[in-house]
Design a protein around this nucleic acid. Structure first.
Lengths: 173, 173
DNA sequence: CAACTCATGTAACCAGTTACATGATTCA
DNA sequence: TGAATCATGTAACTGGTTACATGAGTTG
């Protein structure tokens, strides 16, 4: 049910069309909560049927501009302050680790080295984003910076872990 | 498609029934790749229809014991060495951060403090698991230890990040 | 013999992905 | 005027969750 809240969150600061929102999902939200076109349009329909959004303008090419309602703001707030975020579980990267013993030690090490490299790449990409943004004291900057920092720290720990893990493999094999 | 490979991986070391596998999913694999009963039974049926598993014994109460086939081992190996693990994206914990500016600074800080606490709890739980296991030099110990270490480092970085993030909120509000 | 565990299966539903389909407007 | 972009929608499918249904064997 998080797509609903992602949409409510985006619409809490400004009204937008499905098309506008879709572009936000492709850019800033892509790393946190990706969504496809069919999903966004479908969910916008449900949200207005449920009274959490209104169509407040119609433009050329059938464009519909959605605005959040008071009920929508209540729902967003409720989700933010009262609903426990569910911890992320599934990780195929980690699932594979459980079965690395079916490979030769050097193959297992190669797998872990590849993971270290992928994490390093992610980290470098995020550092490039970080330096490319003109950070200021706006709420968007503050919270955007916080989210980015999470990505930086996570990719760093993934890299360190994978490098350490490679040293553990084959120690006793 | 990872459930298939999780099942193949578990069956690569020993044959088991759906019921046996289910318990493994509830215990050791629960934090990495949870699966439900209906999912496991359904996938076992598909895997044997596809020739990756065989029913090698039938026991009381309709129990079926599944064994991995040569094709199954090939598929497992292929997945481990050739298929790129997809990076985890979706995180409602992080999605919420983008919308914390709709709350008062003290509410946003409370949210982040709660995340720090949750991560600390997870970390403590994993440390308890770590000390409760008799680690040795077996492959299971090696890779189990590596997976556990990931959880320890991840929960630590989550805690540190959330605590730091709370100090950033309201600095300029 | 009652309660518990072992053991499998199916149906309905929800979230998400991919692909198909259509058409209006803008701009070089 | 042709290509690109804007803009919405639907259908089929996949993976996962919850709930329902059934029954055999084990143990106190």
């Amino acid at each position: 049910m998080s797509l609903r809240h992602a949409l409510l969150g985006l619409l809490s600061s400004r009204s937008a069309s499905g098309y506008d929102l879709l572009k936000t999902f492709e850019t800033s939200l892509a790393n946190v909560w990706p969504a496809t076109q069919s999903q966004v349009y479908g969910e916008l329909g449900k949200l207005s049927a449920d009274g959490l959004l209104d169509v407040t303008a119609e433009g050329p090419r059938g464009r519909k501009e959605y605005s959040i309602t008071a009920a929508g703001r209540d729902e967003l707030r409720h989700w933010l302050v009262e609903v426990e975020p569910e911890r992320v579980r599934r990780s195929t990267m980690l699932l594979r680790v459980f079965f690395l013993d079916t490979l030769a030690p050097d193959e297992a090490q190669a797998y872990l080295a590849a993971q270290a490299e992928a994490a390093a790449q992610t980290n470098a990409g995020l550092r490039a984003v970080e330096t490319g943004i003109a950070w200021d004291d706006s709420p968007l900057s503050t919270y955007g910076r916080i989210a980015l920092e999470y990505g930086l720290r996570l990719s760093q720990v993934q890299r360190d872990w994978a490098e350490w893990a490679a040293t553990q493999v084959g120690r006793a094999d």
